[in-house]
């Protein structure tokens, strides 16, 4: 058991509670276009974030004003 294992325990049709080694997982990692992935677009849109180096909080990103004291 000296080899390093990455245990994958899952209940999916692909892996029914199997343990899969790192190598097997790595073999599955073929290049893919982002649009083919099932992504949480709606959720991610709620948390739009400024990633670039400018970090300017633009008007559209400002938190809604409230009647804070």
């Amino acid at each position: 058991m000296n080899k390093i294992l990455l245990w994958f325990v899952a209940k999916t049709e692909l892996f029914s509670c199997n343990d899969v080694s790192v190598k097997e997982i790595a073999d599955k990692m073929t290049p893919v276009r982002e649009e083919t992935l099932r992504l949480p677009r709606s959720f991610a849109h709620n948390l739009r974030i400024i990633i670039d180096s400018e970090y300017e909080l633009e008007e559209s990103l400002k938190v809604t004003e409230t009647n804070s004291p």
Binding site: L47, I49, I50, L61, V63, T64
Partner: peptide, 8 residues
Amino acid sequence: GRITGINR
């Protein structure tokens, strides 16, 4: 309407 985005 409490968040419209989030700052880093």
